[in-house]
Design a protein around this nucleic acid. Sequence first.
DNA 1: GCACTCATGAGGTACGTACCTCAAATCGGC
DNA 2: GCCGATTTGAGGTACGTACCTCATGAGTGC
Lengths: 346, 346
Amino acid sequence: MNEIEVRRRATVHDVARAAGVSLATVDRVLNGRPGVRPATAQKVEAAVAELGFHRDLSASLLARARDLTLVFLIPGGSNEFMESLAEAVARRAVPARAERMHVEARRIPALDPQALADALDGLDARDWDCAVIVASEDEPVMAAVERAARRGIGVMTLVSDLPGSARRQFVGIDNVAAGRTAASLIGRFCPKGKIGVIAGSMHLRDHRERLEGFRAVLAKDFPGLMVLAPVEGHDETEETRERAAALIAGHPDLAGLYNLGAGNAGLVAALDASHRAGGIRVVAHELTAPTRAGLKSGAIDVVLDQNPDGEIRAAIAAARALALGGAGPADAEPIEIGIFLRDNLR
Amino acid sequence: MNEIEVRRRATVHDVARAAGVSLATVDRVLNGRPGVRPATAQKVEAAVAELGFHRDLSASLLARARDLTLVFLIPGGSNEFMESLAEAVARRAVPARAERMHVEARRIPALDPQALADALDGLDARDWDCAVIVASEDEPVMAAVERAARRGIGVMTLVSDLPGSARRQFVGIDNVAAGRTAASLIGRFCPKGKIGVIAGSMHLRDHRERLEGFRAVLAKDFPGLMVLAPVEGHDETEETRERAAALIAGHPDLAGLYNLGAGNAGLVAALDASHRAGGIRVVAHELTAPTRAGLKSGAIDVVLDQNPDGEIRAAIAAARALALGGAGPADAEPIEIGIFLRDNLR
DNA sequence: GCACTCATGAGGTACGTACCTCAAATCGGC
DNA sequence: GCCGATTTGAGGTACGTACCTCATGAGTGC
């Protein structure tokens, strides 16, 4: 069709020829099998680089009897967004199967670093090619990621990143930008007054980043607003309700509320109970049943959303890319931050 | 790993056994080769349905010497969004190649039904599995889609749909919802006054749908606003500038402006020249260089966006699904409408 | 019931990779 | 320069589908 089409993709045979070794040796190097001298391995790697060889995933998955396996370790609890992530995994399982991928979601205790580490440690590298975690930034998690990577399991982070670890890729939104957007909306909505902030946990990097972006824009562009110290609702409905109720009751001049974590059913309940819903400008995260209800009733003004289906799709695509390239981080396109008002609910 | 994993996918061999025919016959039926009695073909199809057989795309593409080919026929002209679609195709060409797909973008004259029809007619079914068009709703286009489908080329529509035609799938946003969202934003921004509307062409279904949604919400929720008759800028910079300038000059009480087509560089130029930028609330479509500039300068308040990369990715995925299933429309997930203010530019 | 066409079966090769076996070559140490 | 261990080569089969040939089956018209 054109010059690109004419030029055949390089195959393992080409690599063998270019490196001056046999097919078996190329295979040993590519699949990390033992019994190859470093000097020979280097010859092969040089040929791979020179030819721009990339393993043909279709053929590779066809030849292995087994599909590419990918497990999502998703926090449990009353966090509706995590629920929707798990549902998205289930939805994508069917089409993924057509692409020779087996994807599965497992729920683990939320905000429990040791439970996440244990779940990672429990993965057998013979069964799983890749694991996707919603990371909290804690030492046991870092160490478990390291161990999994060493066993040959590619670890990716979803929603909340773990930079500096052995994770191969992060899939999620720019949380600093999300916080900044929340601030710029709240700032336009509220001429003056106090702004309350509710987080899930400061151990979650995504929450810390949102707070950082939020504070930065408010401080710079809206000096008339005063940000209260953030309180933690641990992403649970009831705890978030209590924190929100306390904020509302304790500050009669509360102009805005930013819940950068989950537990939005509790937030809406507290707003409704206070009879000040509609008088306080509220920005929350993730389009779920409670935030939809809040938007419709007017209790919530804006919801910032990271499309769970899109994230799961991106994670699955990234896993394929990892399996294909073997090497460096595939450049994933960033997930968009969705902004939802009552009128553009999907 | 679990019961799904254990249960092998059905193969052509299984289908042959279940239908009580040979492999060759199954192959003839699946690939539409001649020489099969209708009764036999039906037996095979029944077996396919019963076993839930789906052709293994990896193996299929491996066996055909040729990659799956997909051509995007994208309007040319000064329309920046179309430009970004073409760029997105080029970007996706590389990863698509790893999935054994050849994708290519061709530019054709904009708003020229005959040119589009000719381009479709010029596609050889031996070279192209699938074509993606940005359709205008005109008879020559409908007929050409019909002919292409008859030749065995799967046609999909992008951005603007062509219902009732032989197109297999539409990839794009819900344009009625986009128009409604524009109205609900303009409505909140403007207490009263006249609202101007600029369209590209009323032959484009997406533009008609946006206008429909826009008018419906304004009429229902914001009766204080008066919508002027829409003018056509034909998605060209200069023509849009003239139309916008005329609207602004002709209506000193113009409160809002909705450009539901392209040509935004002209819109911004007209606003700047009028010295009323900032005094008129402006909603436009598609995040491109001119709309970004407009957001930053304050000339444009909100941009509604359909992520071109996401659309191209969805189109490519849909093409795979079509090639795989052969049958009915793959249920594509709808493309999200992005809302961008100055502060959440990505 | 003959010649003929058309439908079907049987079997092969190919795609690019994974994984296996077995023999042969090469290496290091002494 | 010999031994034993390690490294390498050669070649095979398999995955699931596409596409090919050739032979044989069934069906048709006359």
